[in-house]
Design a protein around this nucleic acid. Sequence first.
DNA 1: CGCCAGGGATCTT
DNA 2: AAGATCCATGGC
Length: 296
Amino acid sequence: MNTSKISININSTINSGQYFLWEKINNSWYGIYEDSILKITSPKDNGNVTYEYDSFPEIENWQHDVFRFEDKYDDIINEISKKDKIIENIIKEYSGLRIMRQKPLQCIISFLCSSNNNIPRIRLILRNLSRKFGKKIEWNNNTFYTFPTLKMLSNISQAELLQCGFGYRAEYVRKTVKSIVDQEIDMNLVRNSDYAKSKQEILKLSGVGEKIADCILLFSFDKMEAFPIDTWIIKLFQKKLGHIIISDLDLKINDKINPNQYKLVSKKIREHYGKYSGYAQQFLYYSIREENRRRW
DNA sequence: CGCCAGGGATCTT
DNA sequence: AAGATCCATGGC
């Protein structure tokens, strides 16, 4: 176990719809990461304080990987803050919110599950899946289950997926797992290419469209310019963000946007916020949902 | 009962 | 090529 003083707000970071398999027990957060359980204890309930990091089985310094401590966080948010007044105020209000880095398989399945769904239910489905098919770990008088491996996932029947609550997304999971097993998608290419090329490749997966592709690239493949555009971001775009991003806005944006509109808006947004647009997105998203008092 | 939820695939024009 | 419709499931 060790501690660090890097600027981070654990509650907003963990509980902001990016990494679903975490739960708070007493004064600690527990998260699922590969074959280990991660643990963070906050001496106070929130704020930028010193946290204690632990894991079982032990992973050395996992927090640097998971919380992206290699990012120059202060430089990034200072840079983004200059882009417009809206983001400046939001970053000030929610300082310490970070992007987390998760393992690709868990991230892909998680966001497959996110389409036309809500966050509490996404978490429930993923917990059901882990409880049934993950490895059981007893630690600190609590029982945890790791996320199923690729091999395990490939052996799960459609009926069992439905039992977990995937609904119509069960078919996406089945096809996507098969594509990965059969190496119809090149994970090394996704990892090592630039944003555009990586996105093109990840879009081959069934159930992965423009938005979910951006989530996967941002949250597990280090493509920090990826800016997922979901229904909440669209609401913000309609209300006030649109005229900041696109001068002389003649673009009609409905509640649901088609892929071409997505690409256009995405391009403009990334031109506006720059190569760390993903951070801007996380702040905007968190802020809108908090304003609307949505459950995480 | 209808509506909504971090959308995407498929069918229709 | 763009637009409309359908998709399981649970909370409200």
